[in-house]
Simulated scan of single mutants.
Amino acid sequence: MEIVPTLTERVTSYPVDILTNRDWDALKQSSEAYLSRLSEGDEESIEWFCLTNGEQLPVTPSAVTFLHVHKEVSEHRILALLHRQDNQAVVALYLGGRWWSLADTLRTSNSARRELVQVQSVAEQIVLYLLNRIIYRKREFLPGNPLFLHHSANQFAKVFWKDGEAVGFYTVQQKGSLCTDHTSQCYQLPVLDTVFVRRTHQRQGIALKILQDFCCTFCEDEAVGISRPISAAMYKVCSKYLPSRPRDQDCLWEVEAPGDWSQRVNVWLQIQMGDVPSVNSAGGGNSSLHSPGEERSQGSTDGDIIGQSPRANACDPHPEVILEPSEAIGGLASDSQALTGQSSGESNMIEGKKEEARSEADTATGRRRRDTGLLEASNLKQVKLTAPPLCD
């Protein structure tokens, strides 16, 4: 029996660099042609794929399957090789006429591809899918975190590249986009939807760079949002970012879809009032923002191979954010819990400071609404001015 090894040798270019001009149709035709040849082959011409640990896996029709990259487009799929001892473990992908290890599909040889790069090409969409549905869902998922949905084909997303490797991403629901396919409601502002940083690259300030990039990318919008509820981890990131960004303090909101003014709460105001999970405590485990029902009942199923998973609470798309484990800091505490054991004088002082913060924030919010035309004067006229940009 002839063995044709397919080694994961060191290469000068990777799929994300090679497939820059490849479309989904070409990728589909290449995969189907290979699968046809594989089905017609005999045992004497079996192809083998060598893992980095030296283990060799036979490439047979029963060991490969198609992965659906986008839930709404069934033609957007890639051919994957599964481990023979675990038919849910993806070990390689067939791209550009050859098999690539999962690690290599997340690498780049382009030195200009560093930090946050917007997802545009087919290969970059595949990288986003792998980080979302394979790396996080299959390898780095922790109990208590939400499972991520498939991203749509036209999803605004950026991948974070570091030292030639994709280590994280964030996605945005853009202003004017539909909340779901089953409603006519549209987002009224850009909303940060999902954030993920790989475990080996956490606690390196990547989440802070993501938040800054999100605000700067949409600096021409008068407001940007993060979906409710915001986790303690994300509030800690906001508490580091906002003090040095006074212009953003009036523009960053915690929102519910579709995000009209009655569905927004100012993030900086929440931090100043202390009505958020503590940003000074330390905790363990990844923290997430999520809709309570989203995919949580499915666990680690074979959704990556079979297809799409519907959003349980489709018109309330809370973001699913995975950040540094040390930044997961527990839940909300009421004012009464926070003041337990303090004297009434101390309580009054704290309440006075909160009232002062509320007054100052209300004044700032009133000025902002008046300047942006969102506050009517006696229902007779509106004052319309250009809102300040989000970025310096």
Rank of each mutant, 00 (worst) to 15 (best):
G205T: 13
P58C: 06
L27T: 09
I271M: 02
G293A: 02
A232D: 01
R137C: 11
C186E: 02
L178R: 00
V16W: 05
K236P: 07
F218A: 01
G164V: 15
V73P: 06
S287N: 11
Q202V: 13
H201D: 04
E254P: 13
I126Q: 08
N313I: 08
S31I: 11
L19E: 00
K381A: 08
E220L: 12
H76F: 09
E324R: 12
G283N: 05
G331N: 10
S343C: 03
I18W: 02
V159D: 02
P317M: 06
V4W: 09
W161G: 05
A63K: 13
T20G: 12
M349A: 14
S13R: 15
Q118Y: 04
G164I: 15
S109R: 10
N379A: 13
C219N: 12
P5F: 14
Q188N: 01
T372C: 13
A223K: 05
F66Y: 05
L79V: 13
V59K: 01
G307H: 02
E351K: 14
D392L: 13
I134H: 07
D371V: 15
R37S: 14
D335Q: 12
G41M: 15
S231H: 11
G341T: 04
F160M: 08
P292Y: 02
M349F: 13
E72N: 09
Y129R: 09
L79D: 01
C315L: 10
V119Y: 00
L116K: 01
S297H: 08
P277S: 03
V127E: 03
A338V: 13
Q85S: 15
M273L: 15
P325R: 10
A207K: 01
S287A: 14
P388L: 05
F218M: 01
V69W: 01
